[in-house]
């Protein structure tokens, strides 16, 4: 059974159809990429999945359970984790405190001791243990991206939504991040990610969905979608 399902998901901003009639299904433990030109509605889609904006129409199911009517915190408790495109750490907190928020509140009924232990594990997994007492506002971009992923991981997600976590990273750093994402999947977490850096998509994605003007343009393996004439047209423009 698919772990995450969207049916007819739509969002109108005024007269603009940011996302229209979008349906897709993500299988458990899959790495699912969403790509597309700027303004295709990728981040809007993630925002609807994590409950930050309300869809104009459509349904969302997580693990077979309808989540469209639930708020962000409830979706998080059900197993939806999210890392943001624009990194948004809590700047006044240390790295550890940032992660602790996810560890303590990501699932209901986590005790303080369990939360601290969990935060330690996540810090270790994401290579942030040495920085745990550093205020989040003093991190480099790569470290901030790691923190963004760490906080999401600390909520113990079944499905992790990553919004362009590679953007702005140097190639060497991106490779490290790719390894991190693979490790996370190997622990049984399903990953849905938005990415512009195509080599990253090629290295990571089991399946790719291409969006353009709020609609699904193509879906399939990396090879399939990159050879699809419609996709090439959307990215490069039509050949005269």
């Amino acid at each position: 059974m698919s772990i995450l399902q969207a049916q007819g998901l739509s969002k109108k901003f005024g007269g603009l159809d940011a996302v229209s009639e979008l349906s897709f299904a993500v299988e458990a433990k899959e790495i699912f990429a969403i790509i597309g030109p700027n303004g295709a509605g990728k981040t809007t889609t993630l925002n609807m999945i994590s409950g930050l904006i309300k869809p104009s129409a459509g349904k969302l199911k997580l693990n077979g359970q309808e989540i469209s009517i639930k708020d962000s915190a409830e979706r998080c408790h059900l197993g939806l984790g999210r890392a943001f495109q624009v990194v948004q750490p809590f700047p006044e907190m240390t790295v550890e405190e940032n992660v602790l928020v996810g560890a303590l509140f990501g699932k209901s009924g986590v005790s303080e001791a369990t939360g601290r232990k969990l935060a330690q594990e996540v810090l270790k997994q994401t290579g942030l243990l040495a920085l745990k007492d550093t205020p989040a506002e003093e991190l480099t971009l790569l470290q901030e991206k790691r923190l963004e992923i760490a906080r999401a991981l600390a909520t113990q997600p079944k499905v992790l939504l990553l919004d362009e976590v590679m953007a702005g990273l140097r190639p060497g750093e991106a490779r490290q991040a790719v390894e991190l994402v693979k490790n996370i999947r190997n622990k049984g977490v399903t990953i849905v990610f938005i990415e512009h850096v195509m080599p990253v998509v090629r290295d990571l994605a089991d399946r790719v969905m291409v969006m353009d003007y709020g609609k699904k343009l193509a879906e399939g393996s990396y090879q399939q979608v990159t050879n699809n004439p419609q996709v090439i047209e959307a990215y490069l423009g039509a050949e005269e």
Binding site: S50, G51, L52, D71, S72, A73, C76, H77, R82, F84, Q88, F90, P91, E92, M93, E97, V101, G102, F105, G106, K107, S108, R151, A152, A154, T155
Partner: peptide, 14 residues
């Protein structure tokens, strides 16, 4: 503190 700093992010983190 999380709510004060960024309510949306806090909510997404549960």
């Amino acid at each position: 503190t999380a709510i004060r700093t960024n309510e949306e992010v806090a909510a997404v983190m549960g």
